[in-house]
Design a protein around this nucleic acid. Structure first.
Lengths: 199, 199
DNA sequence: TGGGTTTGGGACCAAAAAGTCAATAATTCA
DNA sequence: TGAATTATTGACTTTTTGGTCCCAAACCCA
C-alpha cells in the first residue's frame, strides 16, 4: 500500500543510538541525527513524530540490546558462579574503555541528565535500571556471598551493585584512568565473592 | 576606580549554581541564568566572559562548598571511626532525597553529561572526583576494614566508594525510591566496616 | 565640577534550534 | 492505465540560542 519506506527503521534507530550516545539528548541536534541516520528531516518526523519520541525508541533499543546484554551476562547460568558473572560484567566495562570507548552508558547518561526529569523518559530509564538491579540480584543468588545473605540484604546488595555499575560508567566517561577504573571495578566486584564480618 | 559593581559576584555565582544544577549545562539557557542570578545580559558577560567560563566558576564554587563539605565529613577525625564517617556521608545523600532534593550532584551530572568532554570542564570535574577519592581513602585508613587492607587495596576500595557515591546520586536523580536508595547506600557503606573473606 | 573609567540595561544580531509543509516520487489496487 | 496512498525532500517558519554593543548611569580623582 502506497510508497514503501526507503530506509530500515531499525537501522535508523541504531544509528540514532550512536548519535544520542555520543552527544546526549540535548546535545544531539537535528542535523546531527539527520547526518548520522542518513535520512532527511521530513522522513524523520514522519517516521518518528519528534525528537523526544525518537529518543524513546532509541532508549528502547538500547534496552533491548545493551541492557539486555548485561542482563544476559548476569543471569547466564552457563557460568554457575554468580559472583564471577558480576566480575565479568565489570570487566567488560573496563574492556570497553581500554578499546577507547569513553561514551559511558546511554542509560546512565540519560539518568544523570535533565532528560530524566521528563516523565516519559524517566519512566523508561527507571525501568532499565530496575532490570539491572534484578539481574544483579539473580547473580547474587548464585554467588557465595549472596547465598549467605537474607533476601532483604541481597536486594540491598543488588541495588548497591547497580549504583556501582552506574558510577563506574560515569567515571569512565569523566575520563578516569584505566588503572583507577580497574581498581574500582575489582573492588566492587569483590563484594560478590566477599563475606561480611561476623561482628 | 569607576563605577562599582552593583551585585555581589559570589552571590551571583551561588545563584548560578542553582540554575546549572537544576537544568544542566546545556539545559541552562541564558535567560534562565539571567533570571536566576537577577542580573542583565551585559552584566553577566562583563563579569564572567561567557557561559562556559561562568560554568567553570560555578564548578569551582561547588567544589569549595559541596565537595569540600563531603570531604570534610569524610576526613573529620572528631568521628574517629572512618567507617562511620563514610556511612554518614551516604546517609546525608538519603537525607537530601528525603527532603525532596532530586537534583543529584552537580559534579556527577556534569561528569555524565557532554560537558565533561570539554577539556577545561573535564579537568575540573576529574579533579573534584579525585578529591572525593582521596577523602574516601583517608576515611578508610581510619576504618576497621580499611586498616586490614594493603595500601593498594585501600586505594582501590576508595575508588570503588567514589563510584558508589556517584552512582547513588545518579540513581537519586533518576527517581529511585527512598527504600532502594537506602538499601544501596547502606550496602555500600557496609563495605567500610566489613571484612573480606579469607579465601 | 568635570574628565576618565567602569558598570548596568536592553536592544540588537547571526546562527542554530525544533518543527511544518507543499510539491514530487514511488508504490498498490482496481 | 489511473486513482489513491504514502514516503522523500528541502525550503521555510518560528523560536530560541549565545553573544555583542551602545548609551546612560555611577563612581573616583583631580
Amino acid at each position: 500500500m502506497a510508497r514503501p519506506r526507503e530506509f530500515d527503521i531499525d537501522e535508523a534507530i541504531e544509528k540514532a543510538v550512536e548519535v544520542f550516545w555520543a552527544k546526549g539528548y540535548d546535545g544531539a541536534a537535528l542535523p546531527d541525527l539527520l547526518d548520522g541516520m542518513g535520512i532527511a528531516r521530513g522522513s524523520l518526523y514522519k517516521a518518528f513524530g519528534d525528537k523526544k519520541k525518537l529518543f524513546l525508541r532509541v532508549l528502547k533499543h538500547y534496552d533491548e540490546v545493551a541492557v539486555a546484554g548485561a542482563v544476559d551476562l548476569l543471569t547466564d547460568r552457563q557460568e554457575p558462579d554468580g559472583g564471577k558473572r558480576i566480575a565479568r560484567l565489570f570487566d567488560s566495562i573496563i574492556e570497553a574503555v581500554r578499546n577507547g570507548d569513553r561514551r559511558g552508558c546511554l542509560m546512565c547518561n540519560a539518568a544523570a541528565g535533565p532528560a530524566s526529569e521528563d516523565p516519559d523518559i524517566g519512566k523508561v530509564v527507571s525501568s532499565m535500571l530496575a532490570r539491572m538491579t534484578g539481574a544483579f540480584a539473580a547473580a547474587l543468588r548464585d554467588s557465595e556471598h549472596g547465598q549467605q545473605l537474607a533476601s532483604e540484604a541481597r536486594k540491598a546488595e543488588a541495588e548497591s551493585l547497580t549504583a556501582s555499575y552506574v558510577g563506574l560508567r560515569v567515571l569512565a566517561k569523566a575520563g578516569a584512568s584505566i588503572d583507577r577504573l580497574r581498581a574500582a571495578a575489582s573492588a566492587a566486584a569483590a563484594r560478590a565473592v566477599t563475606v561480611p564480618a561476623q561482628t
